[in-house]
Simulated assay, not measured.
Amino acid sequence: MSSESPSPRVQLTDDEWRQKLTPEEFAVLRRAGTEPPFTGEYTDTKTEGIYQCRACGAELFRSSEKFESHCGWPSFFDPARSDAVILRPDHSMGMTRTEVLCASCHSHLGHVFAGEGYPTPTDLRYCINSISLRLVPTRS
C-alpha cells in the first residue's frame, strides 16, 4: 500500500466523471462521501470474485480477503496487491483516520483501521463503500 500520491493513471475532469458515474457514485468516489451503513450491495455478499474500482475498473480487493466485521460496509483485511490502493491521512469529521484511495484514479473507497482485534492475518479492516466497488464473480 502506497502512502504517496503520484498522479493518477486515469485522469478525468469533474464533468467527465459526472458523465461516467451516477450522482451517488460521484458523491462517494469523487467527493469522499459515505453510503449509509448496511445498505450497500456487497456488505453481506459471499460471492467469490474480484472487486474492482467502480470508477476505473482497477482490481482492488479479492473475495478471499473479505471478512464479516458487522460494521455495515464490506470489510477486507488486505488489498489485492500492495500497490492497488493509496493511503492518506484524513482529518475530516473531527478525527484522524486513514483514507483509502484507488491508486489508479484516486477515487475515494473508504478508510482502513488497525488494531481492532479482528482475527485476520493483518489486523487491518479496510472499510470500503460498496458503491465504490464492482464485483466480478470468478467462474467455478
Rank of each mutant, 00 (worst) to 15 (best):
L109W: 01
E25C: 00
C71S: 11
A84C: 07
L135F: 10
P37H: 02
E116R: 12
S92Y: 15
L101P: 09
M93D: 10
G40C: 05
E48V: 09
M93R: 10
R88D: 15
I128M: 08
N129H: 05
R139V: 15
A27F: 03
S5V: 09
P79V: 04
E116S: 06
T34D: 13
T47N: 07
W17M: 00
P74A: 13
Q11N: 13
A80H: 03
D123W: 06
V100Y: 01
A32N: 04
V28Q: 00
L60S: 04
K46G: 08
M95S: 12
S63I: 05
F61I: 05
P137E: 13
T122P: 00
P74C: 09
G72P: 14
E59Y: 13
G57W: 12
R30F: 04
R30N: 04
E16K: 02
D78Q: 15
Q52E: 11
T122G: 04
T98W: 13
E4W: 07
F77N: 11
E35N: 03
F38N: 07
E41G: 09
E68D: 15
R125S: 02
R125L: 02
R62L: 11
I128P: 00
R134W: 13
E68K: 07
H106F: 08
L60I: 02
T22A: 00
G33Y: 05
S7C: 09
S132G: 03
R125W: 02
A80V: 10
T22H: 00
T98S: 05
L87M: 10
T96L: 11
K46T: 14
H111D: 02
D14R: 05
V136P: 10
R9C: 08
L29P: 09
G72Y: 04
R81S: 15
T138V: 08
E68Q: 10
S63H: 13
E4Y: 14
R30I: 01
